[in-house]
Simulated scan of single mutants.
Amino acid sequence: MDAMRTLQVLHAINPLGLIMVVHHTDCGTSHVLDSEVRDNIKKISSLPPSTVDAMNFGEIKDLEASIKEDVELIKNDPLFGGNAPAIVGLVYEVETGRLRQVDEDAASLL
């Protein structure tokens, strides 16, 4: 995952104080199933179907659950050595332009 690698590198160079995980409403990945993506890739790719069937593309069924999953992934990353920076999960509501914090247990930004 490119974003995770970038966080790891940045934290190694200069420890991060806060990471904000932001997803937005009406995201394209919430409208397309992984199975549809796999079917399309099989049509255009030379990869063996079994290889494509094993791939996950980030289908989002529950926006808030997806944010919480990403926050936990960062918190538990071994490259932070158990010292992950503060992490806050947010939803950007494209309809209203508002940010809404998902994890009420985290320090509030809003």
Results as ranks from 00 to 15, higher is better:
residue 1 M to C: 06
residue 1 M to V: 10
residue 2 D to A: 10
residue 3 A to I: 10
residue 5 R to K: 12
residue 5 R to S: 09
residue 7 L to I: 02
residue 8 Q to V: 14
residue 10 L to I: 12
residue 10 L to V: 06
residue 11 H to Y: 01
residue 11 H to N: 15
residue 12 A to W: 08
residue 14 N to F: 10
residue 17 G to T: 12
residue 18 L to N: 03
residue 19 I to G: 01
residue 21 V to P: 00
residue 21 V to H: 02
residue 22 V to H: 01
residue 22 V to Q: 05
residue 23 H to K: 14
residue 23 H to Y: 14
residue 26 D to Y: 08
residue 29 T to Q: 14
residue 29 T to W: 14
residue 30 S to C: 11
residue 31 H to P: 00
residue 32 V to Y: 02
residue 33 L to W: 06
residue 34 D to E: 04
residue 35 S to L: 07
residue 35 S to C: 12
residue 36 E to C: 10
residue 36 E to Y: 03
residue 37 V to L: 02
residue 38 R to I: 00
residue 38 R to P: 00
residue 39 D to M: 12
residue 42 K to E: 02
residue 44 I to M: 11
residue 44 I to F: 08
residue 45 S to E: 09
residue 46 S to P: 02
residue 47 L to T: 09
residue 47 L to Y: 05
residue 48 P to H: 13
residue 50 S to L: 10
residue 51 T to Y: 10
residue 51 T to L: 07
residue 52 V to C: 04
residue 55 M to L: 15
residue 55 M to E: 10
residue 55 M to K: 02
residue 59 E to Y: 02
residue 60 I to H: 04
residue 61 K to G: 11
residue 61 K to C: 09
residue 64 E to C: 09
residue 64 E to Y: 03
residue 64 E to H: 06
residue 66 S to W: 02
residue 67 I to D: 00
residue 68 K to S: 13
residue 68 K to M: 15
residue 68 K to A: 12
residue 69 E to D: 11
residue 69 E to N: 14
residue 70 D to R: 13
residue 72 E to F: 07
residue 73 L to K: 07
residue 75 K to D: 03
residue 76 N to C: 10
residue 77 D to N: 15
residue 77 D to H: 13
residue 78 P to V: 12
residue 79 L to K: 13
residue 81 G to P: 06
residue 82 G to K: 06
residue 82 G to W: 05
residue 83 N to W: 03
residue 84 A to V: 05
residue 84 A to K: 05
residue 86 A to E: 15
residue 88 V to L: 01
residue 89 G to L: 01
residue 89 G to D: 04
residue 90 L to N: 01
residue 91 V to S: 02
residue 92 Y to R: 08
residue 94 V to K: 15
residue 96 T to A: 05
residue 97 G to N: 09
residue 97 G to W: 08
residue 99 L to V: 08
residue 100 R to E: 08
residue 101 Q to F: 05
residue 102 V to S: 03
residue 106 A to L: 07
residue 106 A to F: 01
residue 107 A to P: 06
residue 108 S to M: 14
